[in-house]
Design a protein around this nucleic acid. Structure first.
Length: 457
RNA sequence: GCCAAGGUAGCUUAGAGGCGAAGCGGUGGACUGCAGAUCCAUUACACGGGAGUUCAAAUCUCUCCCUUGGCUCCA
């Protein structure tokens, strides 16, 4: 299977470093506020990537960090008058809850920055020992001039980096040098060989990945916005500290989520949290929406787009329901056409898997699924199909659903509706038998207003 | 300025030299007491403009136009 590698800007054949084991790290959130739908997009995409790799038989270890200390957290905590670490804890819990609701369930381990201070300090010390870093009165900084290939991921050169710099710290050797350790007197601060302070932004990730994966691993993911400077800095730190190249075999980045064509930002007033999203839409609908666009492409969030996703998903649910009902009923039959349908199913599986093999092309995979649905619906309206075929259809759709993290068979509403509704439905049925359509339609319409949809036949 | 990603049918998205895609939506028809779902047809000889390469270009090259993002807060 092929994976697009940001480093080479090409699709490459996926070959794990160690047999069929895949070490995958994705940058997690800084927990200073509620998670938004952009986080949702990225983590749903990587969840499906992890699911598919497992489906293909790889043994995947999916590691994610949680940045639980950082200037933004401290600032927010100060505004609210709470402890930074308890603020971080609270938003971490909300984040994990949001992810669960969205069906993001494949992260094996969440590593908190604050639980890896020892490793962070050790890595900084190594960089100092190897003279890739230097200490000044304000902190410890990485010396980018020591690296020939700094900027290789984002295709930049050092000259570019040294312009457009905002208020560079005057103690640094080069304007592009970034902080490994920030010396700070105010709390929260931790002791280190260089005095009290806290880690820089990039060092926690390499300290964490080195701890769990060693100096090299297969997949590193994150949002497109992290390529520069965050991932460049990670490469600089890790490759300098361990002396091993490359740090990462495949760099994968998700495209941005925009809202009605604009960047989502608080100042534009179009900032949507996952919590707000889920007030309006089923998590499955959002998940479908995310998967209807390739993970590297920008995706445009709008109510219209979500409605389209909702309707598309409904089409899948409907065929599953129909197939399920036909399996329960006795009106299916044998007509010797099984072979035709089994071939169709095999072709569909192949098309779906080919799409996924091609850099996780979920839109094409979905279109294969819809082609199957159309042919099955057509078959149902034209002839009797055997239960064996329906069973296989159901299995295949469930298999696809598992890969995508979508539930295609939704429980029929008739089973869990309450007694009063059932009485109304029975009464209406009797009215229809008497051809009192005026009253029966009124009942149907009122039930619909109450959120209960009746479909005859 | 530098570095990226794009402009594909009414809308949302795939594809990436030669068999015209998927979903949503609209319209007409079949089915139904009606509606819904489903099926059939249609919307639909789609690829931002121009030039070039090629037997063949949505796809490659050049050029122009437009959109969006990044350039030390970012998923």
């Amino acid at each position: 299977m092929k994976v697009y590698n940001t480093m080479t800007r090409k699709k490459e054949e996926l070959k794990p470093m160690n047999k069929n084991r895949i070490k995958m790290f994705v940058c997690g959130p800084t927990v200073y506020d509620k998670s938004h739908i952009g986080h949702g997009r990225t983590y749903i995409a990587f969840d499906v990537i992890a699911r598919y790799l497992k489906y293909k038989g790889y043994s995947v270890f999916y590691l994610q960090n949680i940045t639980d200390i950082d200037d933004k957290i401290i600032k927010r905590a100060g505004e609210l008058g709470v402890e930074p670490l308890s603020l971080a804890k609270k938003f971490e819990e909300l984040y994990l809850h949001d992810m669960e609701l969205l069906g993001v369930t494949n992260v094996n381990y969440y590593a908190r920055a604050m639980e890896h201070l020892t490793e962070i300090i050790n890595q900084i010390q190594t960089l100092l020992d190897k003279e890739f870093a230097y200490e000044t009165p304000t902190g410890v900084y990485f010396d980018e001039s020591k690296l020939e290939d700094f900027g290789k991921l984002s295709n930049r050169n050092i000259e570019d980096l040294n312009i457009h710099r905002v208020n560079p710290d005057t103690t640094k050797r080069n304007p592009g040098d970034f902080a490994l350790w920030k010396k700070r007197d105010e709390e929260p601060a931790w002791n280190s060989p260089w005095g009290k302070g806290r880690p820089g932004w990039h060092i926690e990730d390499t300290a964490i990945t080195e701890t769990y994966f060693g100096g090299q691993f297969d997949i590193h993911g994150g949002g497109l916005d992290l390529i520069f400077p965050h991932h460049e800095a990670e490469i600089a730190q890790m490759e300098s500290a361990t002396g091993k190249k490359p740090m990462v075999k495949y760099w994968m980045h998700t495209g941005f989520l925009n809202v009605s064509g604009e960047k989502m930002s608080k100042s534009l007033g179009n900032f949507i949290t996952i919590k707000e999203l889920l007030k309006e839409y089923d998590p499955q609908v959002f998940r479908y929406f995310v998967l209807s666009t390739h993970y590297r492409s920008p995706i445009d969030f709008s109510d219209d787009a979500l409605m389209q996703s909702q309707n598309s998903l409904k089409r899948i649910h409907k065929v599953m329901e129909t197939v399920d009902q036909l399996l329960e009923s006795d009106i299916t039959g044998e007509n010797g056409n099984d072979e035709k349908y089994l071939k169709l199913l095999e072709d569909t599986r192949e098309e779906f898997l080919n799409a996924m093999d091609n850099d996780f092309n979920t839109p094409i995979a979905l279109s294969a699924l819809f082609n199957l649905i159309r042919d099955i619906n057509k078959g149902i309206s034209e002839e009797k199909i055997s239960k064996q075929v329906f069973k296989e259809v159901k299995n295949l759709l469930n298999e696809f659903g598992d890969i995508l993290g979508l539930t295609f068979l939704v429980e029929s509403s008739t089973s869990d509706s309450d007694e009063l509704v059932n009485i109304l439905v029975d009464v209406r049925e009797k009215l229809r038998e008497k051809k009192d359509y005026e009253l029966s339609d009124e009942i149907r319409s009122k039930l619909s207003d109450a959120g209960i949809n009746l479909e005859d036949k």
